[in-house]
Amino acid sequence: MNKRIALSWSGGKDCCMALDTLISQGFEVVSLVTTVPKELGRTFGHGERTEMIKLQGEALSIPVHFIECTYENYTNQFVKAVQILKNQFNITGIAYGDLYLDEHRDWGEKVASAAGIDALYPLWMKKEEALQSLERFVHSGYEAIVIRVREDVLDDTWLGRIIDKSFLDDVQETSICPMGESGEYHTFVYDGPLFTKRIQLENGELIQLETTKKLEFKNFQLIE
């Protein structure tokens, strides 16, 4: 069976754990797929700059395929891009890091079906299992930092926090999903078992993005 696949990639902990899981299951992830809106010039997922995503791809030795789209043609452009990857890399599936939101899974499965490939959800779980999932990440060896928070649920003191035991303890004192599945917070993974190089982040600056706040790093580079 051909196990060459693409992975929808935001740069955060969920897609990173999906990557780790897929590789442990024998899949070959040949491309990371990231959507970039023409209107903003940042990724749709986390509002991250494309340079940061490129660094992750380089550190993981997996090429990144950016899908340029608008809010109006998002799905159509995604399907077209996946079809191109299917022809170019002979992929048979696309994987997503979603955990339990049915509407996200429905969309991903429709996109895959339209492109003539399979949809994979290696992290799929019950909502009640989210805390265990976060605990697994904390002990996975991957290192991630909180780069964006939703203002209505978390204040900016959460920005810049590392996803560690302290974070695990503190997030349980809030009312949010421990994994931030509804966008309560977003992360950026900068090192871990599959990384050949570490991404060094320096000089973080707080910026406002609509209803969220983000930590923007002025300096970033790959180090051995």
Rank of each mutant, 00 (worst) to 15 (best):
N2Q: 11
K3F: 10
R4E: 12
I5M: 11
L7D: 14
W9Q: 10
G11T: 08
G12D: 07
G12E: 13
C16P: 03
L19V: 02
L22N: 04
I23R: 08
G26H: 12
G26A: 10
V30Y: 00
L32T: 06
V33H: 04
P37S: 07
P37E: 01
G41C: 06
R42K: 10
R42L: 14
F44H: 05
H46D: 04
E48T: 11
E51R: 14
E51A: 03
L55N: 02
Q56M: 03
E58A: 02
I62Q: 01
P63C: 04
H65S: 11
F66Q: 04
T70R: 02
T70F: 02
Q77W: 06
Q77H: 07
F78N: 10
V79E: 00
A81S: 15
V82P: 00
Q88A: 08
Q88F: 08
N90D: 15
I91W: 10
T92P: 00
I94H: 14
A95L: 07
Y96H: 09
D98P: 08
Y100Q: 01
E103H: 15
W107K: 13
A115L: 03
D118N: 14
W124C: 12
W124H: 10
E128R: 14
E129C: 00
E135T: 11
F137H: 06
S140G: 11
E143Q: 12
A144H: 03
R148C: 12
V149M: 01
D152S: 13
L154G: 04
W158D: 01
G160K: 07
I162K: 15
I163H: 09
D164L: 04
S166D: 14
F167V: 09
T174F: 13
I176W: 09
I176N: 04
G180T: 04
G183E: 13
E184V: 11
G192V: 07
G192M: 09
R198C: 06
I199Y: 12
I199W: 07
E202N: 06
G204N: 09
G204S: 06
I207G: 02
Q208H: 12
F217E: 05
L222S: 04
L222D: 08
